[in-house]
Design a protein around this nucleic acid. Structure first.
Lengths: 333, 333
DNA sequence: ATGAAAGCGCTAACAC
DNA sequence: GTGTTAGCGCTTTCAT
């Protein structure tokens, strides 16, 4: 069932059917009725590939993420998708699995599918790949990396502020031995968070033993393993800040496995505020990073560039905010 | 940059370029070199829309899921996608958000994109929509619903066995007052699990107060709310079985919020074994349902139908298995 | 307001 | 082994 068939049934030309379907030009009331009836009867729906081929616009945005298994991303995907659908766009999701080298495959897929724009929500991006996209005039938006430019926007996260809030909170509870479990340090985003932590500590004039800085992998098991190691220390931290909530939950698991309790023995703070965090026993104190805001900004940037011809990219900073729950408590005397 | 441009640069016809790119017919070694060089220099990559339009095959499988925010699904998506990519297929994901009425939109998207097959991993499916797909010869595979037919396969989950194992385990720990928190009862899959629970109890000659059967929503908050209510009962359950892990985690959160402890005061059993479950404090006893197996079966069914012309669908049962961790313990004397 | 027809980029059948 | 060419289904001038 294609447009020609519909046209035949309605006794009009394919052009007219196209006009009715897309509302691109006025059509006589009677004609429109005929066409709509024919569409209805035949169960016709347009072939998007043919449409894309004809117009050069796919009405698809690419969304590149690090790891669909990290709940942060499904929440982001859902928001992005909702907004996209409201604007008649589809979303093509691609995963890098935290492996920067997989980016190339992702970009190629985007190119092959002729996406109208790409939101790159991983912090690693090879300039050469950026060039492949921008060279073809495809709008892009980055999370926390990359510089603004022609059709290139950037969403910044104020890690520093979030981590400062967390450290303030912990020190106000009399914590002095504060540890940090980072993401994989070969990722820029993980390094940025770690630097922010060190900076914040320095500002508070707290010193930090290298034993208290551990590398995780942004997943449960990384946090778990890092904490198990840290618990073997002769002098343990009284509080741990994690690079994301998954890591924090892994840390809580390790504390529990060691027969200790959160927050009585050790306080834990996460980063992201994924849905599960507020339901953990105990609910996790964490730095909230709004997926909705990121998704909205990302979409708006792309849409502005691809539909309203805004060629100049922009920067937008999304705020973060400490959410105090029950995984943090005063240090025990 | 298109195939004609490449052909021109290589001094060959577009057909030859196509043959090189797809390996569909032998090409002279020298010619091939020329073509590859031209492709390299020009950064050419084929336009999938044009390809789909020409051949009628999109090399895309649709994957319809209930809720991308339920970690069960991202894990399933990831497996499915990995297998698909290995076979040169792409994946188009669509969400119903547990709303059967959203299925129609999902199906339409599948049709518009001319998918080569659809895996429907939600348990609700309107026969009319099934007909829209099957009428166009699109292979389908269902999870736990729908009957097998022409190009329609089915993956069955042995809920009964899983729940029997869980009940056996709990009764062996001397539990007698066992409660159940289901998914939304307007979903068939939720009802099936609940029925399996009641059946299993009957088999054990345990009676079950209606107060101990609660409705959740397959998310944290549903489990949390249901448990808060149940804790108000004069006679409380000593163990709770949840329809999925998210619900179980919500239940654990509620138990904690009430100042009680899992498993000392109340045992909790989940269903699915999502990644987080083994890192919970305490690690969750749950009925494991292999996403990898479901994904593999789903893919294989579709691939058989769309690439090897197997027109007869099949049924496959995936096993489930109780994983005993630390959220269950003997009932207190 | 409507129709005829020229592409969009690719593949595949056919001819050489 | 290689080239020519007719579509695939749609949109979009350009006529009328």
């Amino acid at each position: 069932m294609n447009i020609r068939e519909v046209a035949k049934r309605a006794g009009v030309s394919t052009a007219t059917v196209s006009r009715v379907v897309n509302g691109t030009a006025p059509v006589g009331a009677r004609t429109e009725q005929l066409v709509r009836a024919a569409i209805e009867r035949s169960g016709y729906y347009p072939n998007t590939h043919a449409r894309t081929l004809g117009t050069g616009k796919s009405h698809i945005y690419g969304l590149i993420i690090s790891d669909i298994e990290n709940p942060f991303f499904p929440e982001l995907v859902k928001c992005f998708e909702r907004i996209a659908v409201e604007h008649g766009q589809e979303v093509l999701i691609a995963n890098t699995d935290y492996k920067p080298e997989r980016m190339q495959v992702c970009v190629r897929r985007m190119l092959e599918r002729k996406v109208d724009g790409v939101a790159i929500m991983t912090s690693e991006m090879d300039p050469e790949l950026t060039q492949m996209l921008s060279g073809r005039g495809i709008p892009m938006v980055f999370l926390d990396t990359g510089s603004v430019g022609k059709r290139i926007s950037n969403i910044c996260i104020d890690y520093g502020s979030g981590i400062d809030q967390a450290i303030d909170h912990l020190t106000s509870l009399a914590h002095r031995r504060i540890a940090f479990v980072s993401g994989p340090v070969d990722l820029a985003s993980a390094r940025i968070r770690r630097e922010a932590f060190l900076m914040s500590l320095r500002r508070k004039k707290l010193k930090c033993s290298p034993d208290f800085i551990r590398e995780g992998n942004h997943r449960f098991d990384g946090g778990y393993a890092a904490m198990i190691e840290m618990l073997k220390l002769r002098v343990r931290p009284t509080a741990v800040l994690a690079s994301n909530d998954l890591t924090a939950i892994g840390i809580m698991g390790a504390v529990h496995a060691a027969g200790l309790r959160v927050p009585e023995d050790i306080s834990v703070v996460g980063f992201d505020d994924i849905a599960i965090s507020s339901f953990m026993p105990p609910p996790l104190t964490t730095i909230r990073l709004s997926r909705a805001e990121i998704a909205e900004r990302a979409f708006t940037s792309l849409y502005g560039a691809s539909h309203r011809g805004e060629s100049q990219g922009s920067t937008h900073t999304v705020r973060v905010e400490l959410v105090i729950r029950q995984s943090t408590a005063p240090v025990r005397p």
